[in-house]
Design a protein around this nucleic acid. Structure first.
Lengths: 197, 197
DNA sequence: CTCCTATCTTGACAGTGTAAGGATATGGGC
DNA sequence: GCCCATATCCTTACACTGTCAAGATAGGAG
């Protein structure tokens, strides 16, 4: 992770992952639109053209970052499911909570993944990771007894809407609650979209 | 009025609104991230520095465009309400449908308003327009019998989630329906979030 | 007609992404 | 030990961007 204190080694050692970390940090600090490839390189302590060898261009870097994001997004859902009751409805709500957890913890990365057209979803690595991530919630709907397209859309849209509004800090009445109370309220809301609730 | 044959008139006449139209067209064609102030100026047939006098800088232009967007966003909701039943629940669903209409008709503008940090919401004109627009749905919730923060959040998040997913074309199963069937399905989904439904 | 002001243009500057070619380290064959 | 093939990183250069400063033009007031 941390490279040596003396003048920077010519060969970084693990520049690829260092650039990904630097890119996410830059995104979080300066925002999606002010993102600059040269700033990322500077933050990683490397010349402005170094990223090219690992990612091709800026889109390549953001594509790789988004793919990594989708994998961690799926992990956030799984983490919630692991500590929830095992019945299908509880698992579905847990997946939705993980969806929201991720959006609140890393709002700019969430935006890169969902609202930006800079990542290239035709790159197989990202395409696969993205589909796996946002199909997971929909799959849970079927296990919980959902049968129609409307059931899938309702649960997904509700979780996504909560996540997006919370990530941009527009649901102040909810975001200001302490975590436990917030969790309970959000779980109650997600349950409204459940089939037969 | 248009003396287009000779070289362009030195004074445009209505450059401010021409630049706003050009900006929205550029956004729709080239996307949020590839937006360029110079391209907008070129599209409006004017020098690259002409926008500065009307909007200050790029952020000023995008702020003005977002403010105009929020006004039309509110109008889209009102248009749906005008042709809906007058009972509070129907009016609420209609507002949600207008919310979605706007997102599907002008997806990039929707993104500028909701997911970009380039517009400056501290400018009073935009701040007022934005608050008026997204409080309208929430106000309808109270009229329809909603009392809690959860009621407000549920309806808003559901409408917003549907709008956002449809704007980015991820709800293919819903987006592919013909308008009438799609309306019916979306209305049914929104109703799920209603208090006491 | 003269001049004032708002409007638009031109020219310049720093910062950006990207491509081309040069510099340096690493490891394998000898 | 020596040498060089390769991956890795740097330097340079170019077109494009947003913004600022200064000049050009038009329309209207007096």
């Amino acid at each position: 992770m941390q490279d040596a204190a003396p003048p920077r080694p010519y060969h970084h050692g693990d520049l690829r992952s260092a650039l990904l970390s630097a890119a996410e940090a830059e995104l979080a600090e300066r925002g999606m639109e002010a993102f600059s490839l040269r700033s990322v390189a500077k933050r990683a302590g490397v010349s402005h053209a170094a990223p090219a060898h690992h990612f091709g261009d800026a889109q390549g870097l953001l594509t790789a970052l988004a793919a990594e994001g989708f994998r961690q997004f799926l992990a956030a859902q799984s983490a919630r499911e692991a500590v929830a009751e095992s019945d299908p409805a509880s698992q579905l709500v847990a997946a939705g909570m993980g969806y929201i957890d991720f959006a609140m913890a890393r709002p700019t990365l969430f935006r890169l993944m969902w609202q930006s057209n800079r990542p290239d979803f035709d790159i197989p690595d990202l395409g696969k990771a993205a589909r796996a991530a946002f199909h997971h919630l929909v799959d849970q709907v079927a296990k919980a007894g959902g049968e129609t397209t409307a059931d899938e859309a309702a649960v997904w849209a509700l979780a996504h809407g909560l996540a997006d509004l919370l990530a941009s800090n527009r649901l102040r009445g909810v975001g200001a609650l302490d975590p436990a109370a917030r969790d309970e309220m959000l779980a109650g809301i997600i349950r409204r979209a459940l089939p037969g609730a």
